[in-house]
Design a protein around this nucleic acid. Structure first.
Lengths: 246, 246
DNA sequence: TAGTGGTCTAGACCACCCT
DNA sequence: GGGTGGTCTAGACCACTAG
């Protein structure tokens, strides 16, 4: 009674913190600059460390911060745009140096991938592992699933399993005519092995790009590429050189 | 000494929990089924609630769970694929019922958008708000920024600001010839207003799709659409009907 | 009003990186 | 060894939903 209702909007503390720190990032910090450590920041803002961490996590999710254990928290550079437009791609590995072949193995495909390939979950496929590197930094790890039926010409002898084997699978795949591809993008979290190659912790947020390569009415191969969500912006340059023309 | 080193891999508890619960989800639960509450689950697994929550958060991020305050945690249905292929789009709002116009206002564009539009940050633009609904559920909220110069024919009188105004802006925009568009996808967190329209909490993870509409060598409009990352899989059907043919 | 998930605290210890 | 972020605990209270 008699008291004026003073903004009784219980905005969470971590949300407010995120805003405040975000603004400070714009005005007071340069890219690459290192922030005070979490314990000090928490004390400075008068909150528990867990609460501060919630704010930092959000900022990291948005690509504004970068945190490394044992090192500290730094201001992240703007996200790099990585081209995932389909016209650029054609078959995987055509004269591209953006992807590095890592190795290849024979294995079964995960259930979801087997469904896309329309094969039995127990059927064996070639699994090619590749890594995409941009400006010296790994940005994506890919698993390319190729059913044996798609590469009948592949000689089985060379079972070295190394990069040479991976390139051999890709070379055979290119013998097919590519009729088209579909692509989808969704949010995921990095599996342990992907995380290691991407220099992140397991569970880090990633953008999962799934591509079906179609040939002769069938799905000839499926690629599952996981991109670092913190540092990457996926671009689909559907106009591309058109913007340059005229 | 004398003790055999027993798998001293300090896999985080929450990571292990996530795996265990994820497997249980596959085998013991049906879509829509409600899980025991967090306090009980934590007790059952012998961990603190915060630790259990870390596991649930990951599963929610991957679209496997859905949590609602005051209600409970349920098993999420598979993500819905929403088509964001550019051929389908042409100008925004051409005979589509997937998008609902909400309203339109005159405002300045955020700095990042002003840069894409190549206009002054203080220049006024039409901001059209739209909502994308799929199967009765809101999946995306969009802000379409249209510089006044792109819609010279727009009559200023009708400043109602409601859906009618929004449709008028779109109608005028369609007078231009569309030369092409660029699109990019990145991870973000929902702003308060988007979160409300998407029926999520502020900060919820979203996929931000930014589109530049090009006309006569200029950027005629910019769309920033935020899709619910938990329930959506963005699809780029670059083959589409090709898969149907032959 | 009872029960749910969301926020917050004040500690502790661990894994990792640098010097 | 000293400092960083990452994990974990055992509590407490709040905001929301439903019966």
């Amino acid at each position: 009674m008699g008291t004026t209702q003073l903004e009784t909007v219980p905005e969470p503390k971590y949300w407010h913190l995120k805003t405040v720190i975000g603004e400070a990032l714009d005005s007071d910090f340069a890219v690459g600059e290192i922030l005070p450590n979490e314990r000090e920041l928490a004390a400075r803002f008068g909150v528990a460390r867990a609460t501060l961490r919630q704010a930092l996590e959000q900022l990291e999710l948005e690509g504004r911060l970068q945190r490394r254990r044992g090192v500290g928290t730094t201001v992240a550079p703007p996200r790099v745009g990585v081209d995932v437009s389909t016209t650029q791609h054609s078959w995987p590995g055509v004269g591209e140096d953006t992807w590095q072949s890592v190795d290849s193995a024979d294995d079964t495909a995960p259930a979801a991938v087997a469904r896309l390939l329309d094969i039995e979950p127990t059927a064996r496929v070639h699994v090619v592992r590749r890594l995409r590197v941009t400006e010296g930094q790994p940005v994506a790890a890919e698993l390319l699933y190729v059913p044996a039926g798609s590469v009948p010409g592949l000689v089985e002898a060379d079972a070295s399993g190394g990069p040479a084997r991976a390139r051999a699978v890709l070379r055979e795949l290119r013998q097919l005519t590519l009729d088209g591809q579909d692509r989808s993008v969704e949010l995921g979290s990095a599996r342990a092995d992907d995380a290691r190659e991407l220099d992140r912790l397991p569970g880090a947020p990633v953008l999962v790009v799934t591509t079906r390569y179609l040939s002769e009415g069938r799905t000839a191969a499926v690629s599952v590429a996981t991109y670092r969500a913190d540092t990457c912006r996926l671009t689909f340059g559907d106009s591309g050189d058109l913007a340059m023309a005229s």
